[in-house]
């Protein structure tokens, strides 16, 4: 891996960590503990477009693992993990569809992220009850996905990296 990629990746990972910490400060959108807005996905999306899937994956792993360690909360791990990975998977898949802009990929990623979080909640609580929160969360995903996509499109256009 080129040095530039490595350092870019490191910076992005740090950024993702910071974002994931900040988003933890917002009140949860639904009364399920552990559900987060998904701001850190901006980084995943951006990394996907500029560094490629393997790097984006590495950044995601770092963010999830270190994030859980810093939060001192092991149960946060499963939420971040399932949310982040689901988003990653969806975004990688959607990118293949060349006609789709960053907005489409981002909305798909956000939707998958929320599905992953609900799945995590279901696993932690051992019940199917959290599934009832999916409809509002999916609608929210459209908006948060649009926002993430917007931020990313700005960054990509400026070719900051």
């Amino acid at each position: 891996m080129k040095t530039k990629q490595l350092t870019t990746g490191a910076i992005l990972a740090a950024l993702a960590l910071a974002l994931s910490y900040v988003e933890g400060m917002f009140p949860p959108p639904v009364p399920l503990p552990g559900v987060k807005l998904g701001l850190a996905n901006i980084v995943t999306l951006f990394a996907l477009y500029t560094l490629g899937a393997p790097s984006a994956l590495a950044i995601l792993l770092v963010r999830v693992l270190l994030g859980a360690m810093f939060a001192g909360n092991a149960s946060a791990l499963i939420f971040s993990l399932l949310g982040g990975f689901s988003a990653m998977l969806a975004m990688v898949a959607l990118r293949r569809w060349e006609k789709l802009s960053v907005y489409g990929v981002s909305v798909g990623g956000a939707a998958a992220h929320n599905c992953g979080q609900v799945a995590a909640a279901m696993l932690t609580l051992g019940s199917a009850a959290p599934a009832a929160y999916l409809p509002p969360l999916l609608v929210a995903a459209v908006f948060s996905g649009a926002l993430t996509g917007f931020v990313c499109s700005l960054l990509l256009r400026r070719k900051v990296f």
Partner: peptide, 22 residues
């Protein structure tokens, strides 16, 4: 790329079932 991510994802899921199952 997609395959790589998919495999990693599946491994993660498998690992999780170990922790998450009670």
């Amino acid at each position: 790329m997609k395959k790589c991510a998919l495999i990693l994802y599946l491994i993660a899921c498998l690992a999780l079932t170990g922790c998450a199952r009670r």
